[in-house]
Computed example of a mutant assay.
Amino acid sequence: MSEHIGSRIYELRSYYGIGQKELAEGICTQGNISHIEKGNQLPNSDILFQIAKKLGVGVQYFFEDYEAPRNNYIEDTCEMIRHYLHKHEYERAYSIINTELKNPLFRRADLKKFLLWQKSVCHFHLFSKEEAIDLLEVAIDIKIGHSRALSMLDIELFTSSAIMLTDLGQYKQATLKYNTAIKKFKKHPHSNYGNIKIPIRILYNSSINFYRDNDFINSYERANQGIKLCLENDSLYLLGELYYQAGISSFKTGGKDYLSLIESSLWLLKKKESSHVEYINEKYNYYKSLDPQVNSIEV
Rank of each mutant, 00 (worst) to 15 (best):
S296F: 15
K53F: 14
D257W: 08
A109E: 07
A174T: 04
E130P: 02
E278C: 08
A149M: 12
I81V: 11
H4K: 10
G56L: 04
E137Y: 10
E137S: 13
R201N: 10
G247E: 02
M152I: 09
Q20F: 07
R92Q: 10
Q50E: 11
D141K: 15
A174R: 02
S120K: 07
T77D: 08
K102P: 06
E64K: 09
Q118F: 08
P292Y: 14
W267Q: 09
K87E: 15
I202Y: 06
I182S: 07
G226F: 00
P292F: 13
C78P: 02
L231H: 00
K129A: 11
E37L: 07
G56I: 05
A246E: 04
D65Y: 05
V57C: 03
L231R: 04
G169F: 07
N103D: 15
H4V: 05
L176M: 14
R108T: 06
I217D: 05
E282R: 12
S260G: 04
N103M: 04
Q60L: 14
T175D: 13
D167N: 06
K113P: 03
N209G: 02
A52D: 08
N179S: 10
F210H: 09
E89L: 06
P104I: 05
L290F: 08
K228I: 01
K113C: 02
Y171H: 09
N103P: 00
E3A: 13
K187E: 15
G39C: 07
T175W: 15
I208R: 13
L111A: 05
S14G: 08
L203N: 00
G169D: 01
W267T: 11
K38L: 15
I144N: 07
E79F: 13
D154S: 15
S160T: 14
T175I: 15
F127A: 14
K54L: 06
N218Y: 11
I142Y: 03
K184P: 00
D215L: 07
H83W: 13
A174V: 07
E282H: 10
H35M: 15
E89H: 09
K177L: 12
K187R: 15
T159Y: 04
S250L: 09
M152F: 14
K270I: 06
E221F: 10
P292W: 15
I198E: 03
Q118G: 05
G56H: 03
R148D: 11
S265H: 02
K177Q: 14
R107C: 04
N71F: 12
S275V: 12
D46I: 12
I140D: 00
L176K: 14
L136G: 05
I33R: 02
E273P: 01
G169Q: 05
Y61G: 03
Q225V: 01
A52Y: 08
S274F: 10
S2F: 10
F158Q: 09
V277A: 11
K87N: 11
F106S: 02
F124S: 03
D46Q: 11
I182K: 12
D134I: 14
L115K: 01
I74N: 03
V138D: 12
